[in-house]
Amino acid sequence: MQPPKIDIRGLDFFFDKKQVIRDFSLEIPANEILAVFGPANSGTTTLLQAMNRLTDLRPGARAEGRILLDGKNVFDADVNVTELRRRVGMVFEVPTPLPLSIYENVAYGPRLRSRKNHAALDEVVETALVRAALWDDVKDRLHTAGARLSGGQQQRLCIARVLALEPEVILLDRPCSGLDPISTAKIEESLRQLKEHFTIVLIPHNVQQAGRVADQVAFMLMGSLVEHGATDEVFRNPKNQKTNDYITGRFG
């Protein structure tokens, strides 16, 4: 059996004195979609942002424990944070195209790292847009502003922007929460295809989405892991009463 892509061991996370993640341990296998879900303030977003250390930007943030990416703790002092964030890409809840053209949005990450020649960059941008299922929509207007796209297209642009980094892990924080069902379906279809190449951690905006796309699910409550397992198993036969209550809609 392959070693896990990400191995979270005994993670405690604090903002100043407030603890938002408690003794959290979870193995995330490569090339699968893991959905981490729970009610608001369960610590899901913090967990995701800790994986690529975006939490470094938050005042008062402090982590104890380890998050191993291919066996290497991301909190180690010798970790190059910008390189970590390239390997572990993030898609945010609100689609946020930078105030640049579609092309420049996708090229943003690659341009940060090196001066690629035009042809190579064109290819990276095209590949990323194709994989994010946006290419056909935008190929004739790559140099118009990203902000002019519809909400669903903007979110796919954000996914393309992450794909252009050629990452290993993609983190998505409620990527469809503001989108219509058709856009949501398109993004979910993309995710199913993308998991062949990437490890995907998704915070779904509702339980149904976890059921539709995830191979494994993890249920969090008040910063602790309540239950974790294969999606079918957890949904059909939850071991924990709270999980059962949550997925059947009795609370949350």
């Binding site: 690529n52 975006l54 930007l57 910008t82 390189e83 964030r85 390239r86 890409g89 993030m90 945010f92 946020t96 930078l98 943003y108 990450g109 940060l112 790292r113 954000c158 922007r161 992450v162 980094l165």
Partner: peptide, 8 residues
């Protein structure tokens, strides 16, 4: 956040 998350 976006710029940092893209490795900036």
């Amino acid at each position: 956040d976006v710029s940092f998350s893209l490795g900036g």
